[in-house]
Design a protein around this nucleic acid. Structure first.
Lengths: 204, 204
DNA sequence: GAAACTTTTTCCCTATTGGCAACAAAATTG
DNA sequence: CAATTTTGTTGCCAATAGGGAAAAAGTTTC
């Protein structure tokens, strides 16, 4: 049940600093400068005051979440970087490896989800190998939903993917599908044998 | 060579609303409830006051970015969802399907990359199935690098994954690896036969 | 169903934000 | 190089965030 992890020592993962208000300002300023915009330009786009933006960039204030969100939109900034938690190492320059069947299992009556590469806790995508147990379609419960995107590849067996907005999709070994996981979904093994799928989830 | 796409018409992708402070509270509350924690539990973890958290969850206040960041950490929430920009077309409520071997191929002397699910152009992850042609290790060129993260799963055959910071990793069918794709990497088939891998790339 | 306890909400008050406007600095122009 | 315009910084002040404590609502127990 223990995942096999990096058996050779990796580089020292230097914990990136969280923007404790000490760097948040610089991040925003550099993003603005990069686009060649003035305080006023950005302030207008974000519908805030020039002075407010100036203070934020100089770390003279702890801005509200609302303001930051508007700035992010105005500057078209990708957000995850703002939330990098210090201490918790990120995956920068790192890797993690899992041998077949050695992942972290989470089993229910109808599934057996195996989470892979559990050492890297700050990774953005979550890779799983799941066994979808053969069963009657009538057992189909409610939709699964979680904001994000999902990719699924059928390793062996065959299954039916049910989705909220489409008619059921028959899938066989080698087939793959990509979908908005906010759309209700769920799958059922259609053969007598269990189906094995690999899927990768991206939370948003 | 043409990918098989959604053969049934999808729903109209309605632009998702951004959390204008009207739903932020609910998101945090549901995350807390999901974990079975009380206001006090979370408040302590995030080092804020109970009352503050209560007000945030009930949308009675516009919390500071700092507070939200601490709550995110405490609740282990993925953050991008809070910044969803409406307008930009996303894959909301959609899905795309590719049959084995029907993806968009891109072949070189040493690889054959098959991009899957090409209909969904705005997806965040890029799924590929690649054939890594059997060859001599001496042919190994320079590192591949691109900002982001990558997950790889070996479907068949065996290969060696070379990475900048680690020593080579021997992988066989069923093994998987996750790594920072900004770290130099590249792989070589180690058996006489070609190796087939499935990999998913997340650009950042 | 009252008592004891837990969890959440509501006041109250101080510290701080965020916008306006004046000020200073830098760039542009004639 | 003075005048003008543009960009960035600082006071000032109303509006409000956030913490402590008390009240209210919800649970559990006997």
């Amino acid at each position: 049940m223990e995942p096999v992890q990096t058996e050779d020592a990796g580089p020292v993962a230097e914990g990136r600093e969280a923007p404790d208000g000490q760097v948040l300002g610089q991040m925003i300023r550099s993003a603005r400068k990069e686009k060649g915009l003035t305080l006023e330009d950005v302030a207008k786009m974000a519908a805030i005051g020039r002075s407010t933006l100036s203070k934020i960039e100089n770390n003279l204030t702890k801005p509200s979440f609302d303001i930051i969100r508007r700035l992010m939109q105005a500057l078209d900034l990708k957000t995850p970087q703002l939330f990098v938690q210090s201490g918790k190492s990120d995956i920068s320059g790192r890797r993690d490896y899992t041998l077949t069947g050695k992942g972290e299992h989470q089993e229910t009556a109808t599934y057996d989800h195996e989470l892979l590469c559990t050492e890297l806790t700050s990774k953005r995508m979550l890779p799983y190998i799941s066994t979808i147990k053969a069963r009657d379609v009538s057992e189909f419960e409610s939709w699964v939903r979680h904001r994000g995107e999902e990719f699924m590849y059928v390793i062996s067996g065959s299954l039916t993917l049910y989705t909220e907005h489409y008619r059921p999709l028959e899938m066989r070994a080698g087939d793959s599908v990509y979908y908005d996981s906010g759309m209700g979904h769920g799958c059922v093994s259609t053969s007598d044998e269990d189906a094995r799928v690999l899927w990768v989830s991206l939370e948003m």
